[in-house]
Design a protein around this nucleic acid. Structure first.
Length: 201
DNA sequence: CTGCAATTCCGAGATGATCA
DNA sequence: TGATCATCTCGGAATTGCAG
């Protein structure tokens, strides 16, 4: 019977709740994200509000069965519940002042989404190349993969010996280990929105 | 003495009512 | 609305009884 396999081992009442993977705190944050009261969630899950309260306070360690019932009140599965970043103060939205210029700005501008990419799987940038801008004869090459979409203007992109003129609306995707070079040979600035993984800046 | 089933005890989760 | 409390329920551990 899964009912007897407790999420937190040992004496939940006496020992520190850090043994458990933050069940209570996670449940409370998830519930608030969805804007449910304890009673509302209890009704959706088919348990009592007292149970929700006790779980959130980590005064009980719910069985697998009852935790699953509670999670049925949300569109989330057990794995996501235990692994999702529910930190309430994580940054989601970025204004222009939150973008970090990492290429000097003239003639090439790379505005990095977020000033700190540590812990991220994706690096995203707003790139701008003035007419004549060139990443240089010395080809770029680094580990990872990158892709981008030309928003305006045009870009001559060389990847692994292959060259192509990309215009607004066109895009690229390549293994960053291949030698590559970006050149704006057009008459207007070229704007690209790009992504790279893992982050290289 | 050993092995097994039945019974009892106890701890912890869940409930429903109530409080602040 | 969230927290608390008395009570209920359930399952594991311990104990008991009995046959072989």
């Amino acid at each position: 019977m899964d009912k007897d396999f407790r999420i937190a081992h040992g004496q939940a009442h006496q020992e520190t709740p850090t043994q458990a993977p933050d069940i209570g705190r996670r449940l409370r944050e998830l519930r608030k994200m969805y804007g449910f009261s304890q009673r509302e969630l209890a009704k959706r899950a088919g348990v009592t509000n007292g149970t929700i309260s006790l779980i959130e306070q980590e005064r009980i360690s719910p069985s697998i069965g009852s935790l699953k019932k509670v999670l049925d009140g949300f569109p989330i599965n057990m794995t996501d519940f235990l692994t999702l970043d529910l930190t309430p103060n994580r940054k989601v939205f970025y204004g222009e002042k939150d973008m970090k210029e990492i290429a000097g700005g003239d003639p090439i501008s790379f505005k990095l989404l977020g000033k700190d990419t540590r812990g991220r799987a994706i690096q995203m940038m707003h790139e701008s190349y003035k007419p004549g801008a060139d990443t240089g004869e010395e080809m770029l090459a680094h580990s990872g993969e990158e892709c981008g979409i030309v928003i305006s203007g045009e870009m001559v992109l060389t990847v692994g010996g292959e060259t192509r003129l990309l215009q607004a609306g066109e895009a690229y995707y390549f293994d960053s280990r291949l030698p590559h070079r970006f050149r704006n040979l057009g008459k207007t600035s070229c704007v690209i929105v790009s992504a790279c993984t893992p982050p290289s800046f």
